[in-house]
Design a binder for these strands. Structure first.
Length: 464
RNA sequence: GCCCGCUUGGUGUAGAGGUUAUCAUGCAGGAUUGUCAUUCCUGCGACCCGGGUUCAAUUCCCGGAGCGGGCGCCA
């Protein structure tokens, strides 16, 4: 759609170039490069949709404008008006195949919209490596790099596909508060804040609220929203503010919501594999990876159902592989690597010991592990060594809920805020929370979760 | 919180107890009227901070700050 500043996007110039030849257009974008040659000059112009070369001649634009463009700094925003023309093909070396026809704009006038200061703190098109810290300090420039922009556009796609899958299964999107009076889950540290005259916290999880939706009879809800954790971890997979993709589902067990999750992820992957735009983003990321000598990322659509490796089986497998672990232990990173040897992609880890799961997780009496300890209806979803999701069926029986709190040495009175919502009848329900950044890391091959967040908040970074 | 490592032009790097501190990219100036990773010529620009050892420290030692990797925990 035309706007005040342009009649066509640069993507449109290339896509519809044959029909646009000789028509007057106004385009605008960032100047990626200029190549001066005496009385002529070439500008590589880039906008959010593509690139187009602008051809300037002193005869057309005047010497003053030509000189101004030749002196212009890279990444300045410029606006050109001129006629579309087919670009002359480059000189070919022997054996090279000619490129497909491309289109350029023969400029008749130029407007400098905003000149970029030089030098740039990071080169948008430079071939030199830039460290993540430098990139995040100058994220607005980093985002101008093709493979970075592709990553964020893919992020939007993934959220869209996730919504599609859930809405098709009868879920609807909702929102829960991020300012809370008390911890909703216990365990992790919270960021304190002041709420008028009352101390409050940034919420670490929508857990309680989405369960209250079940108590309220909303049956199938999902939320995509921020969660805040004040833990001082410093790893490739942790953030202090991340986006949690949560669902809660009534009249459902852990097995039921594992089905919802694997179908949603399958839909995400299949859509990326089939959608032209999504494929082009993956291709852009792979072009960059190739330039760095890295393996391309492959979108391998996972088969349904995902493998299910129960906690008990996981312990047995780890022991067989020589890992040091006992039934009842959490599975640490080293042992996760052992598991991932044979499970490099998605797999569920259901039926954890009750003692390793929160008080609100449901259990079925008589489902015991090899040591006779009670199993839970809590599960994780891993991709290789990394945990992407944890979920489970929730405890809807009031007496058992209170009993769970006591068994875990928690004071039921302190959890009154939680328990209160379940006193007046509640359907059996289950749900999960998926880390959006983590799943994106798996899709795009990012080695650090911060790559997948516009402005990540980590232990050391609150700005920009 | 624990363990390990790093810090050199705008960016990314090489390197040594005494150097004109390397290379790439960038930036500035010049040449080229169809370039396209433009090319060619000339130039510019750096040793994180504090203390110590030494004739001499950017280099070695100590401390600090910043950054990175691993772990715990988690999504």
């Amino acid at each position: 759609m035309p706007t005040h500043y342009r009649t066509h996007t640069l993507g449109e110039i290339q896509a519809n170039g044959a029909d646009l030849i000789d028509s007057e257009v106004t385009v605008a974008g960032f100047m990626e490069a200029n190549r001066g040659k005496g009385a002529i000059c070439f500008v590589d112009l880039r906008d959010g949709t593509g690139k187009t070369q602008i051809f300037l001649k002193a005869d057309n634009v005047g010497e003053e404008s030509l000189d101004m463009v030749q002196r212009m700094t890279r990444e300045s925003t410029l606006q050109f008006t001129g006629k579309v023309s087919e670009k002359r093909p480059p000189k070919l070396k022997e054996g090279e195949t000619p490129p497909p026809p491309a289109y350029e704009v023969i400029a008749e006038s130029v407007v400098v919209i905003a000149k970029a200061e030089a030098p740039l703190p990071l080169g948008v098109t430079d071939t030199v490596h830039v460290e993540l810290d430098t990139r995040l300090d100058n994220r607005f420039l980093d985002l101008r790099r093709a493979h970075i922009a592709a990553m964020f556009r893919l992020r939007g796609k993934i959220l869209q596909y996730g919504r599609e899958a859930l809405i098709n299964e009868g879920f609807f999107e909702t929102h829960t508060p991020k300012i809370v009076a008390t911890a909703t889950e216990g365990g992790t540290d919270l960021f304190p804040m002041q709420y008028f005259d009352t101390p409050a916290f940034l919420n670490q999880s929508p857990q309680l609220f989405k369960q209250l939706c079940m108590s309220g009879g909303l049956e199938r809800v999902f939320e995509i929203g921020p969660a805040f954790r004040a833990e001082k971890h410093d790893t490739y997979r942790h953030l202090n503010e991340f986006i949690s993709f949560d669902i809660e589902c009534s009249w459902a067990t852990d097995d039921d919501v594992m089905g919802v999750l694997e179908r949603m992820i399958h839909h995400m992957w299949q859509s990326v594999a089939n959608d032209e735009e999504s494929k082009s983003y993956i291709a852009t990321i792979n072009e960059y990876r190739a330039s760095k000598g890295e393996e391309p990322v492959e979108v391998i659509v996972p088969e349904l159902p995902f493998p299910r490796v129960s906690y008990c089986d996981a312990i047995r497998i780890i022991k067989e592989k020589g890992g040091e672990i006992e039934w009842g232990d959490d599975i640490d990173a080293e042992n996760s690597d052992l598991l991932a040897e044979d499970l490099p992609q998605f797999y569920f880890l259901p039926r954890w010991p009750m003692a390793l799961k929160p008080f609100y997780i449901h259990h079925v009496e008589g489902e015991d592990g090899s040591t006779g300890d009670q199993l839970s209806r809590g599960f994780d979803l891993n991709f290789g060594r990394d945990e992407l999701t944890s979920g489970g069926q929730r405890e809807h029986r009031m007496d058992v809920l209170i009993d769970n709190l006591k068994k875990m040495d928690l004071d039921p009175e302190e959890f009154e805020f939680y328990v209160a919502g379940f006193r007046h009848g509640v359907p059996p329900h289950a749900g999960w929370g998926l880390g959006v950044e983590r799943i994106l890391m798996k899709l795009t091959g990012a080695k650090n979760v911060r790559e997948t967040v516009l402005f990540p908040r980590d232990r050391k970074r609150v700005s920009p």
